[in-house]
Amino acid sequence: MSLGPEEVKKIAYLARLAVSEDDVPAYARNLSSILDLVAQMNTVDTRGIEPLAHPLAMTQRLRSDEPTEPDQRTLFQGIAPQVEAGLYLVPKVIE
């Protein structure tokens, strides 16, 4: 499996990662070699095998519907890059 520069750029965009043009070939090479490693999975026939998502066969526990969390805005926004009037600020979102 080999990824070309265009595919690398597409994936980088999907993952919202800026990758400089100079770094694209190295990513293409490394990602391709990882996919080659991964391709070893194809040596085994897994038809009919139920996928395993969790190591333990447990089911979801439910919490009672109680508001338990106090307002900690001041603490949380103390580590935010940019806030105003209690809001997190981001560059203008165009809809």
């Binding site: 990824l3 690398v8 994936i11 999907l14 993952a15 990662l17 990758v19 990513y27 990602l31 991964v38």
Partner: peptide, 13 residues
């Protein structure tokens, strides 16, 4: 980290 994020995004796409 970027490599693994990209592999993961690709594998799920």
């Amino acid at each position: 980290v970027k490599r693994r994020i990209m592999i993961g995004a690709y594998a799920l796409s």
